[in-house]
Design a protein around this nucleic acid. Structure first.
Lengths: 182, 182
DNA sequence: CAGTTAGGTTCATTCAATGAACCTAGAGTG
DNA sequence: CACTCTAGGTTCATTGAATGAACCTAACTG
């Protein structure tokens, strides 16, 4: 990884984090993992990333301990990629990046809203629940579509993510399979 | 910017944030700006980034409204790059990335510690003060060297950052100028 | 007026991203 | 039992960006 070669001598834990998640597409792969995407093909169609790049990123994330590659069926051997504890710890990074992108990038209409599932309150910029005054773990976060969300994405995974969802819950096969069931 | 071309169709404020700060070196430039680095040459020696890349990144950050380029002397015209409000809003992103890099990247010895200047308490993972229970704005953060910090960095800016410092306070010329005053 | 400093630009080379094509192995279908 | 589909890749030529060295400019310094 090119970043690593240059960042290694940087005296900074930010640089060390960027060695792992700072490459192109990597954080979007992790984001999709939080959204419940687990399979190679689902990442592929949802991100629109080249296959070779996706394979390289998934492998790098597994080696870094961010994702766990696990066999979910044997007959045709199929693996899925699931966030580890280390990967789950990236939630504040994604949350703060998303909050910044929504608040500070001009012309941004809210695309998704994140709520504390226990009480329904929308999360604050730090991923905390303003009502309960606690940092909300991703498993307790409910994602709801916002006004800026494209109502008809081209890929089945994007369509599955139109509905309110709990984070980390795997995208169901029934959501993804049939294309045009309106 | 290559990222923009591909991320634009992504329905996500994380992707929009990455269009601005997701490129190689960009977040490290912003980090240095928080550390008090303001001048082209100081970024250059501290980051070890190619000159052309630094010029492109600074220009992009100015266009994105993250940095403000301001003339600080006329006689030889010299500009400095200072964080805007929008740039200051990136502090939670850097803080959470740094916290993750320290906690989750194996073999990481703490390089710098960040404390609430008002009370001296070390910041939590979200950039909050655990004692005062408030998010600490970067101007109120004191940075102190940690055990993992190289005690003799090769560049004068790195040496200036060895001492405890308030964030955003510009790196003084007297810190940077003389090389080997032990 | 020679040297230095700040802040760049230009250019050839290297390296990674892209996207299309191809590969493999098992599953379902007629 | 041939055909085709699906999941999960690999390979390869092309494109594009990063790299680092060299060069440029303008002003100040001794």
């Amino acid at each position: 990884m090119a970043l690593g070669k240059d960042y290694v001598h940087q005296q900074c834990s930010i640089a060390r984090a960027l060695e792992v998640v700072g490459e192109r597409w990597t954080l979007l792969v992790v984001r999709d993992a939080f959204y419940g995407v687990r399979r190679y093909n689902d990442f592929l169609v949802h991100l629109g990333v080249p296959r070779a790049v996706l394979a390289a990123r998934l492998q790098a994330l597994v080696e870094a301990g961010v994702l766990d590659r696990r066999r979910y069926q044997e007959s045709p051997p199929r693996d899925e990629y699931v966030l580890t504890e280390r990967g789950l710890a990236l939630w504040p990074v994604l949350r703060s990046l998303g909050a910044w992108g929504r608040a500070e990038v001009p012309g941004a209409v809210p695309v998704r809203h994140f709520h504390h599932a226990d009480c329904g309150t929308e999360l604050g910029s730090y991923g905390e629940c303003p009502a309960c005054r606690i940092p909300v773990p991703p498993a307790d976060v409910e994602m709801r579509p916002g006004a800026g969300l494209d109502p008809d994405p081209g890929d089945p995974v994007g369509r599955a993510l139109l509905r309110p969802r709990r984070l980390l819950v795997p995208v169901g096969r029934e959501d993804v399979s049939e294309a045009g069931n309106s």
